[in-house]
Amino acid sequence: MEFFLQLVLSGLVVGSIYALVGLGFVIIYKSSSILNFAQGEFLMLGAYVCVAIFNATKVPFLAAFLLTLVFSALLGVTLERVLLRPMIGEPVISVIMLTLGLASVLKAVVQGIWGTDTQPYPEIFPTTPVRIGPLPVSQGYLYSVGSVLVLLALFSVFFKYSRAGIAMRATAFSQQVALSMGISVKRIFALSWSIAAVVSAVGGVLLGGVRGGVDGAFALFGLKVIPVVILGGLDSVAGAIVGGVIMGVLENLAGGYLDPLLGGGVKEVAPFVALVAILAVRPYGLFGKIKIERV
């Protein structure tokens, strides 16, 4: 039982980070129909930049973290401006290829600057575990799941109630009609790339803190996010969150119980198996919207 709970718990931590990256992915997809394959690289870059700022400036970690968020927001705006805006009107598939290219470039830049060794993270969470019932739980887990929850709640409120959030949803429905309302669609795109980069960077830093360091494997989170968002329904923020958590837990359980029996590899495959199974039952994903049809 304790083994099971431990697996679920660490699955929740990874799953909440999937949820963040998934959120970024969905925001870009919703506003511009672009699948951003560089989402995992945003996470990796955020994790590297944060520790680099911390090491170089010796400011408190929290300050380094906030600077990283500013960096990510600017990165998002800049990428939209120089890379994606010139692609407006081009076929979506070319834009998607472009994000694949962007992913390789970001990976190369990171390796060029920081090499391939793990960059250690400072102790950012208190190290003594707290007990929840019978279970000793590392505080890092609690902090990261907690901050993800807060962040997701903030974004839900933002999308539901703020004018910018409503305008983003309107743009996702139809760019032309959004323009006719006086909404600057370019600004909405820039905003969505910023948000995507920022939430991914938060995920990266939390992951760095929990794992005690960052390396190139962080970018793999981008790959895991594809089944996560398809599971959730691709255009649903709630779906990305639930999908992320389910995937994280499932993957961990599969790894804990099946890998020893089958000799490994199940952990990596499990998300995709789950994906196929769920899509067979719900072709639009768990939360995907079925277009409103009136007769």
Binding site: I166, R169, F173, S174, M181, G182, I183
Partner: peptide, 18 residues
């Protein structure tokens, strides 16, 4: 051309975006 997956009131809010 209403924003179908927005509520009536949200549509009205978007109208006043500028």
């Amino acid at each position: 051309r209403v924003f179908e997956d927005l509520t009536v009131e949200e549509n009205i809010v978007v109208g006043g975006y500028t």
